[in-house]
Design a protein around this nucleic acid. Sequence first.
DNA 1: CATTCAATGTATGAGCCTCTCACATCGCTC
DNA 2: GAGCGATGTGAGAGGCTCATACATTGAATG
Lengths: 215, 215
Amino acid sequence: MAPTPKGRATYHHGDLAAALVQTTLEIIDEVGVRGFSVAEAARRTCVSPGAPYRHFADRDALLAAAALEVSRRLRAIYLDTVADVGSAQERLATVAGSFVRAAARYRGGLDILFAPGLRAAHPELRDSTREFVDLLLPSAFEVVAPDEAAVTAVALLDALHALARGYVAQLLEGKFGDPDDVVEEVAVRATRAARALVAGYGVPSGPVREEGRDR
Amino acid sequence: MAPTPKGRATYHHGDLAAALVQTTLEIIDEVGVRGFSVAEAARRTCVSPGAPYRHFADRDALLAAAALEVSRRLRAIYLDTVADVGSAQERLATVAGSFVRAAARYRGGLDILFAPGLRAAHPELRDSTREFVDLLLPSAFEVVAPDEAAVTAVALLDALHALARGYVAQLLEGKFGDPDDVVEEVAVRATRAARALVAGYGVPSGPVREEGRDR
DNA sequence: CATTCAATGTATGAGCCTCTCACATCGCTC
DNA sequence: GAGCGATGTGAGAGGCTCATACATTGAATG
């Protein structure tokens, strides 16, 4: 007869996919990506170990879906807190700091969002970040010198992207100490670095000429 | 009598620890961190599946040792190719590009060097990077404004570190296309971004004032 | 309503992996 | 040359991923 398994009223779950993503995020917050297992996610969601595979091709697919959810939340944060900063320069600089602060909040989430293997295998993850970056494109155009603006604007965003991710990585791995303690300081530093970057791309050929060796 | 197992002449291996690290790097180059297993490393080294655990507490410890080896190689590359660049400014900028180029060569290695979980759990990995960054400290001091030089120099290096790691991450996950094809272009961009960063930190209070919102 | 069917969950199990433990083998020291 | 500590082997417990066959059910259809 197989009565509806332990923690549930109905045989069918209702929205297992979403529940699994949520559970996955929780598990990862607790034990990190390495500690995560599909089996554990199934257990916490009160379904059999095989059930998740109805919705996700494999472990990585579930992780990728969770990472995608994280990127959606980051986007929301951006729209709430950064989108309406006054000048384009400050908007670009602020987003870096804001990103660092978000990292401290969604700790585990950021871990999967940036897990090397996952991103390499799941283009939709890269796309999501790319879309996010594109939100900033108008600001970048405002900041950059008008000639060859297109190329430079994209390059600037890539640089900002790189910078922010690098700071987040260092923050999350505890390089500066307990992330919760230092997040604000790191966010400020990231903002300052971003400002320097923006300034550097804003001048027609950059403040340092092509060959900088003999100034 | 248990004849000395298949691929070996003696019962004892000689230097299993080093051999395992080497094999680990090879495996990761082929199949990535996710595809790596201690069992496979043991197989390729022609020892029993349990043997590695005489030398490494667990899978992560072996990975960390391999990552440490990678960081040693990176250090060597730096000393060979960057250490004697003329000006401090260019030295700092060049190291970013050089790092990106190294990433394309030691692809798998960089994956583990930057695997979020690993670095968080193994301080010696962070230390190794830290030591590497410290090699650049003198250059940073040269570049930075003399007042509060200490704080700023370190901050500049952290920013450069973040920038370079971010570029490497994007390169390796294929954001710009096949890493081998784009590595040079990305390296140039990283160098340029690094220059902008260095320039931004070189001016006493940065090119944009504290409160930048109402320029 | 009754039926049917596609979607969703369960049960079972094969195969692999990590890591442990008792035992075998060997290089070194005294 | 005897003993000992270090290093390797073999067997196995327990867990995980994923495939396959079967059970259950909500929804569409007549």
